[in-house]
Each structure stands twice: as C-alpha cells, then as structure tokens.
Design a protein around this nucleic acid. Structure first.
Lengths: 206, 206
DNA sequence: CGCACCGCTGGTCCTAGGACGATGTGCCCA
DNA sequence: TGGGCACATCGTCCTAGGACCAGCGGTGCG
C-alpha cells in the first residue's frame, strides 16, 4: 500500500486527487496540507511514501518545502498548474522524484505515483524538455569571454612559461601576470594553471 | 493494448523481457530486433507503441538507432546494462522517453512501459542524477562563490547605495568598490548593478 | 636516516590608479 | 523649444603592491 500525502492550497484539487487516488487499491491518501509549511510538518508526522506537491502555495512554496524535505525518505512528485520551464531544474536539483502538470490524466498520475514509489524518476514531457534545454538554469554564470591580454597570458602559460617569464615577455610586473592568470582561471572555471594550459591546447590556442 | 518492440543483441534478454511483458494483459510484444539497424527497420514495419532499446548493440548501436528514429511516434525506452552516466544526456537529447538499467525490477519495467506509453518521461534515479550532474558541457564556468568583501559590497549595492556611498561605508576608495562590483557582476553572470541587486534580493540577501 | 625549517612558485583577496567608453541629466544658448 | 555641451555615474581593462596561504624541494641538524 502506497501512502500518499497531498499538498495543494486548493481544497477542490485536494479533494479531487484524494477521491481518485483512494479508488486505487494499492494507494491510500494519508493526509492533506494546504501550504508548504504544513506539508513539511505532515511529512515529519506521517512519513508518507509519496508527497504530491504543488509549487505555488502560500506561507511556504513548494520549492521551499522541497529544500526542507531533502533527505527525507518520502518521494516527492511536483504537481504544478502553470508550465514555467524554469521551475523544473531547481525542483529536480532540490530532490524531486517527479514533475508533472495538473493536466495529467488521472491514470497517468497513478502510474506516476507507483513509478516514483518504485524508485524511478518521472517527468512530464515538457518538464523533460525544460531540463534538457536549460541545464543550469537560474544562477549559472554566463560563459565569460577572455580579454585580449588574458588570451596572451593564457597562450604563454600554455607554452609552459612561468609567471616571471610571462611578465618579462609582456614587460609587466610578475604581479600583473598573477592577476591575469587568476582571472583566466576563474573565467575558464578551472583550478590551476595546468588545467588552464590543457584547456588552451584542447580549444585550439595551442 | 500497448504494442512493444524489443531491441537487444542477447537472445536471452529478449526472451526474458518478452515472456514477462506478455504476461501483462495490457502489453503485447510484437517483435524483436538483434541490432540497431533491425530495430529501425522493424519500427517502420510494425509501428510499435514502445521500443525497449539496448544501447550496446552490433551493426548500429542504440544511440544511432535513436537518432534515426527521432520523429517516429514510437516511444523509446533505453534499457542498458552498463551504467555510464555520459550515455544519458545524448540519449535523452536524441529523443528517448525513458532511461532504465537492466537491474530494474520487472514490475517497475512494466510501469515504465505504461508511463512512457502515456506520454511521460521516466528515468532511473542514476540516470536522473547523471542528467542533473552534467550540465557543464564544455566550458561552462563553475558557480563561482563571492568573497566576504564582495558580499558586503553586494549587500550595500542591493540597498540602493552608489559606489561613492559604498566606498564611504567601507572606508575604501571608490575605485576599489568599482572593482568589487565588476567582480560581483562577473561572478553572478549579470550585466549591471541593477540585475545584481535583483539577484541579491531574490536569493535572500535583501 | 628522518624531520624540521627555509625559500621559491603559484594562487587568492583586497586594495587602487589611469585610461577609456557608454549613458543619463541638466543647463545654456541659438 | 530644441540642440548640444558639460558633468556625473557606471563599468571595463590593464596595471600593480601587500598580506597571506599551500605545496614542493633542498638543506642542515639531531
């Protein structure tokens, strides 16, 4: 028997879901929450197998609840009405096991509950698309271009020169070279000059 | 009745899947393919609802088949034995509707077939993780953390202070504030202080 | 022999000046 | 009134010094 908790701020939606899910002989709805805070509390009390979680809720929204529930054994299916692709990534990263829209047809929802309970991850097609399209959507720094000077430094660095040698080549202080190198490392997202050199070689600056 | 085609180069695997799936009263196996080329051909002939596709196959591998089948109405579930995270992204981008490992337990596989047939996208947990973990395609800089000083500057900036005012508050030169602001903009991947302020507010620094 | 210390190199963070370019604002004069 | 100029603000790029930390290799001492 799969024990389900429903979190949605609309009583009508809760009632509809409850009625339909309770008709399944392997599913029982063990509770309802009207906001995120209540959902978090009830997950603690009831330890349901699956939480159906609306994203748009008062007091604490679904994403907030998701974050607070990371680590819980309850499997969480986001069930949202509005189709905002930028919701998908954060929700999945926050540990959701499913992402569906409320226009899902009821048998599919039941299957989803079962699949998620069985340890799988299930997405509505639009949600899957959103994840493929926007890998790091949200706070990811854009790819930062190197300046002319930084490219010069990188080229010399990739040729195996030391900071002092690079400084002499460019007739600037060694300190300046260090600064450029630091900026290059940050922009390339690598940890040290060796990786920067490899990057340069691999991307045709060698 | 869900019509399923099985593509796997091991007869034993095909036989096992066929036997189990045919036991379900809403699923019927309509054919088997031993390599990717055959799978493509049989999809054309039989137009199955769902194709269970192994990735590692002779003649044409699963990914090749996936690409050739993009556009077909058949929903494709990748069913692979080896757990190579780097397979997941390409397969999903090539249009797979599911990604499972062969250690999936049979009832879960049946659910997967039903869910995918119902239009959903279903991943094994490891596959979902792989997709979330590998956004860095190529040169995407890692999320760069702000330094202490940069956070101070950002907080004041988000409070609407000018560079000169921030400088006075921190007792440094205005030039220094500009430098910090520039670095913050770069690290946050935003274009100007306004966006940086919005970012700060949205991410709980307001 | 092994360990401790020293110096070098690399790297970070904070600081800051000079040159320059884009944008916006306000004021003056034709 | 409108065009244009002066000025401030913002932001970038290059420069660079000081403080500090980590890792590595050599050297000398117990």
């Amino acid at each position: 028997m799969i024990r389900v908790l429903i979190a949605d701020d609309h009583p009508v939606v809760r009632q509809g879901l409850r009625t339909f899910l309770d008709l399944q002989d392997d599913i029982t709805v063990v509770g309802e929450a009207a906001d995120g805070a209540q959902a978090v509390e009830l997950v603690g009390e009831l330890a349901p197998d699956v939480l159906l979680l609306d994203l748009k809720m008062p007091v604490m929204d679904g994403l907030g609840a998701l974050e607070r529930l990371s680590g819980a054994t309850t499997r969480i299916v986001v069930l949202t009405s509005v189709s905002d692709p930028s919701d998908v990534g954060p929700a999945m990263r926050a540990g959701a096991a499913g992402f569906l829209y409320k226009d899902v047809d009821p048998p599919a929802l039941v299957q989803a509950v079962r699949a998620v309970h069985g340890g799988q991850v299930l997405l509505a097609p639009e949600a899957a698309e959103a994840m493929l399209a926007a890998p790091t959507a949200g706070a990811a720094p854009a790819p930062v271009p190197l300046t002319e000077r930084e490219r010069e430094v990188l080229a010399l660095l990739a040729a195996g020169r030391s900071n002092r040698e690079i400084a002499r080549s460019l007739t600037v202080a060694e300190k300046t070279v260090k600064t450029h190198v630091s900026n290059v490392l940050m922009k390339l997202g690598v940890q040290d000059r060796t990786q920067a050199a490899l990057y340069a070689v691999r991307h045709g600056l060698g």
